[in-house]
């Protein structure tokens, strides 16, 4: 995945930078980049994208005009995919921004475009107490048949979502709801862009789940948080409106054991990802 994007000017000055995930040590990366730019001025890359390894990371870079473009990515990343993304980045920047007298201060609109290029992975975390239907929801999204026997999740179960939901890779973190695993929650939601809080729509459970909303807002304030009022097929279910009022987050109805809810749920998650991005950009 792309961890950071940097665009450097002629003097090795940083014209643009954005971090998508923590990398080993930000400080030495900047130092390294400045040296890299100086070095690159002495060679001709012929506008090709090259890369260089530094410990577990891989730096992809290209030069065009006065500017050096860098992705801090992982060694495991596919280099042809990175090359393609690099071309997109260079094109957009050169076309729309490089002519500006002071690009560093006039980059409105550029951020969103970089997001489109660089975000290759979205983390969606599903949180909720034991037995509310988190794992069932995950199966529903993946279009898998449900196991007959309830098998409580241990710790966290991490699965990819099918591509039809989004062009980015979505990794879904299904967190175990048993209280003995609750000490993991804070750490496990780190860096999530979307958090789904699942309730079984009983009053008792929804009230308890308010705590989860708080935890998520504390741990990942930038994440988009949505609620799920699951088990709407049961007679005791509160309405989704009621659940949403109590949790104070946008909340949607669901019957996770009913396959006909799949498309609706996919729409909800897709929207949450987009809205999450838009909110992050506005902030």
């Amino acid at each position: 995945m792309i961890r950071s994007v940097y665009i450097l000017g002629e003097q090795g000055n940083i014209v643009y930078s954005k971090d998508y995930a923590k990398s080993e040590s930000a400080e030495s990366i900047v130092e390294f980049l400045v040296n890299l730019t100086q070095f690159l001025r002495t060679v001709d890359l012929e506008e090709k994208t090259e890369f260089m390894n530094l410990a577990a990371q891989r730096f992809f870079y290209a030069v065009k005009g006065h500017f050096t473009f860098v992705f801090v990515a992982d060694k495991a990343d596919d280099s042809s995919q990175m090359e393609e993304k690099m071309e997109q980045l260079v094109d957009i920047f050169i076309k729309d921004f490089s002519e500006l007298p002071d690009p560093a201060t006039q980059m409105d609109g550029f951020d969103a475009k970089v997001d489109e290029i660089a975000v290759t992975m979205v983390k969606v975390a599903i949180l909720g107490y034991a037995g509310v239907g988190k794992t069932t929801t995950l199966h529903l999204l993946r279009g898998e048949t449900l196991p007959l026997v309830h098998d409580p999740t241990i710790g966290v179960s991490i699965k990819k979502l099918p591509e039809e939901i989004s062009t980015a890779n979505i990794v879904l973190w299904d967190l175990a709801g048993q209280s003995r695993f609750s000490i993991l929650w804070a750490k496990m939601v780190a860096n999530a862009q979307v958090v789904i809080i699942v309730t079984d729509s009983t009053l008792e459970n929804v009230l308890r789940s308010k705590k989860l909303v708080q935890l998520v807002k504390d741990e990942v304030p930038d994440a988009k948080v949505i609620g799920i009022a699951n088990k709407q097929d049961l007679p005791t279910a509160l309405t989704p409106e009621r659940v949403g009022q109590i949790l104070a987050i946008p909340t949607y109805e669901l019957v996770a054991i009913d396959i006909s809810y799949r498309d609706r749920l996919i729409q909800i998650i897709r929207r949450a990802i987009l809205e999450g991005k838009a909110e992050a950009a506005a902030a």
């Binding site: 241990i154 710790g155 966290v156 179960s157 991490i158 175990a176 695993f181 000490i183 993991l184």
Partner: peptide, 14 residues
């Protein structure tokens, strides 16, 4: 298995 890795991680939580 993912379960094993989870349990190991859990051991070191505190």
């Amino acid at each position: 298995s993912e379960k094993k890795l989870n349990l190991i991680f859990y051991e070191h939580q505190q």
